[in-house]
């Protein structure tokens, strides 16, 4: 049984993208629907933030990869998503048109960007410490766990100074690697609840069809129905991503083959780690 997984926002754009017909089709659609030019990674008339560009870029690349997988005969039994990978995942399961997935990504991203209001937010990636230790570090520094990707790979979100102090503490406790990334908003934390009504308004502008391929979500590992989707799209930005549980649930559901549709191969690497701990 095959699972196609859709990763979240990339940290940077890809190098050496193959420019084929699938790329050109989605690049044209992306430019028309959002104003972002994929090849030059630049906005048209309406200039939005770099993070929004990366979010739209991530959705577009996922749509291209999904097209390539389809062309090569890959038929998923289940679709899975991580963070903002939900938008192309909705397109892949037939719940949303590609064009809507792109505009929804842009509008949600822009709404998140508007949250900053002078506050600098960051993400901090901690590799090598147990989850319980990272949870304590987050609490000590006023940060939040945004992604629990594996038992030893967690992402924190919060105000920049909180994340920087959390990364310093993690390193002092023996973390193998820590990295800080800029972001517009503290994704997957309760801080997003302050703009939940705004996000619900955006989501309310879209109609979601019943998924034609089962779509497993990353919070409770349930399969989403069309009626679940609007609430999930708001809720998922306020709650942490639990990829470890999602991978294990997918395996219990019978998945034996994995394809990652998007930038990079982080989900495959998380899976490799989780699988190695199960042996």
């Amino acid at each position: 049984m095959i699972c196609v997984m859709f990763p979240g926002q990339p940290l940077t754009q890809e190098n050496n993208l193959p420019i084929d017909e699938d790329f050109r089709d989605i690049a044209l659609l992306t430019r028309r629907m959002t104003g972002l030019d994929l090849e030059s990674f630049s906005w048209g008339e309406k200039i939005l933030s770099r993070q929004v560009a990366l979010q739209v870029y991530g959705t577009a690349i996922s749509l291209i990869q999904r097209q390539r997988l389809q062309s090569s005969g890959v038929k998923p039994a289940i679709i899975a998503e991580h963070s903002m990978g939900i938008y192309p995942a909705l397109a892949a399961c037939g719940s949303l048109a590609d064009s809507d997935a792109l505009t929804l990504t842009m509008r949600v991203g822009n709404s998140l960007a508007s949250m900053a209001g002078g506050v600098e937010y960051s993400l901090g990636c901690v590799i090598g410490l147990p989850a319980t230790t990272v949870l304590s570090v987050a609490e000590n520094n006023g940060a939040y766990v945004a992604n629990r990707n594996t038992s030893r790979h967690l992402l924190l979100a919060g105000e920049r100074h909180s994340i920087e102090s959390a990364m310093a503490e993690s390193l002092s406790l023996g973390a193998f690697s820590v990295r800080t990334f800029p972001c517009d908003a503290p994704l997957h934390t309760p801080l997003i609840e302050s703009i939940a009504p705004q996000l619900a308004g955006i989501v309310g502008d879209y109609c979601f069809a019943e998924p034609t391929v089962p779509l497993m979500e990353h919070i409770e590992q349930e399969f989403l129905t069309a009626s679940d989707i609007p609430d999930f799209l708001v809720q998922e930005l306020c709650l942490p991503v639990n990829w470890e549980e999602t991978y294990l649930a997918l395996r219990r559901a019978g998945i034996t083959a994995w394809h990652e549709a998007g930038c990079g191969d982080s989900l495959k690497k998380y899976n490799r780690w989780i699988a190695s701990e199960q042996q």
């Binding site: 090598g128 193998f176 990295r179 998380y270 780690w273 190695s276």
Partner: peptide, 27 residues
């Protein structure tokens, strides 16, 4: 390779050779 790969190699080295990479600087 990236940091996720490196941590996987740390575990594999410890398992296969009993060798510990104690910190990021050593890594």
């Amino acid at each position: 390779l990236d940091s996720i790969d490196a941590l996987q190699l740390v575990v594999a080295m410890e398992k296969s050779y009993g060798v510990v990479v104690p910190d990021a600087a050593t890594g």
